[in-house]
């Protein structure tokens, strides 16, 4: 290293040091610790003869118990089902909205604001609002259905409807994604459309042959973000249903949280966290692998 390089190296490290320290303390060490804990029995309150709490190594016992745990499979299934319901619906709705909002029409700004606003609403507040909308007797939906003579379901109070209802309400917050899609749509060069039109392509063909392929990098980015977010879903079901009725909305992260902080099995919860991490990494890697086939990068 020349002296200039060394000087830059020190300077650079100094500037990024806040993040570096934070990364070590709040990411690297905790991730390592949680891997270690996942092989331990650790209850936070359990004290040894010296009055100290500590994690005791128990080998692969947590993982062995986890793979025999019915709740593990149940919460995994619920989370997966929720993802399958809400992810594609969310993508379709947000792309559709973005396409409509991209059209040069009057009142665009107002439309855009209204679609975007719900994504600003704090999760607890939106949970409250939707609990009220879903209320079996006094809720808006069932009162509306009652006016046309239909006895609505109990929504989040009915084990068949609860999960779809949660997925449905997740659409309310797509505003963020819509904005990202809109920005992506702006990036598509006009001449592509013009060329397609000269070739005699109709609106549908333009959508499938120009818009969607050109938008695919943005779709891919949103897919990955949504995947990571959806597989960790916690606050909404936790607040709205507490995982019920009959655990039909009991999600993986809620089970993990309860294992750790209600049942004080930190080791077991850490094992769960690692399984979750591996699943998310696996799915993301899979998405990257398939992306070669459907994501088109401009100028590449």
């Amino acid at each position: 290293m020349s002296s200039r390089e060394r000087q830059n190296f020190v300077k650079g490290l100094l500037f990024v040091s806040p993040w570096l320290i934070g990364f070590l303390v709040f990411t690297l060490v905790p991730v390592g610790l949680s891997l270690y804990y996942s092989f331990c029995d650790f209850s936070l309150i359990e004290r040894d003869t010296a009055g100290k709490t500590q994690a005791i190594w128990v080998g692969t016992e947590n993982y062995r118990q986890l793979f025999q745990d019915r709740e593990f499979y149940r919460t995994l299934k619920n989370t997966g089902l929720y993802a399958i319901l809400s992810l594609p619906a969310g993508m379709l709705v947000s792309i559709g909205l973005a396409l409509m909002l991209n059209a040069p029409i009057r009142g665009q700004a107002i439309y855009r604001t209204i679609i975007f606003l719900p994504s600003l609403v704090p999760v607890v507040a939106s949970a409250m609002v939707w609990m009220w909308l879903f209320n079996a007797r006094l809720g808006f939906f069932n009162q509306l259905l009652a006016t046309i003579g239909i006895d609505g379901p109990a929504w989040i109070g009915d084990k068949k409807w609860a999960l779809p209802a949660l997925a449905m309400m997740s659409l309310w917050g797509v505003g963020n994604t819509v904005v990202i899609y809109l920005a992506g749509l702006q990036d598509i060069p006009r001449d592509l459309y013009e060329a397609a039109e000269i070739d005699g392509a109709g609106a549908i063909r333009r959508l499938f042959n120009v818009t969607l392929p050109m938008l695919s990098p943005v779709i891919f980015f949103n897919l990955i973000m949504a995947l990571i977010g959806t597989l960790q879903v916690f606050a909404l079901p936790f607040i709205m249903t507490g995982g019920g009725p009959e655990r039909s909305t009991y999600m993986y992260t809620q089970y993990l949280y309860e294992k750790a902080f209600a049942y004080l099995q930190m080791g077991y919860a850490s094992a769960m966290a690692w399984v979750q991490l591996l699943i998310i990494l696996g799915l993301t890697a899979f998405a990257f692998w398939t992306s070669k086939r459907w994501v088109h990068y401009q100028g590449r």
Binding site: D41, I56, V58, E61
Partner: peptide, 13 residues
């Protein structure tokens, strides 16, 4: 109980 037993084996606590 299994976890408790393993605790005992590994640390006697």
């Amino acid at each position: 109980l299994k976890r408790q037993a393993l605790r005992q084996v590994h640390a006697g606590t």
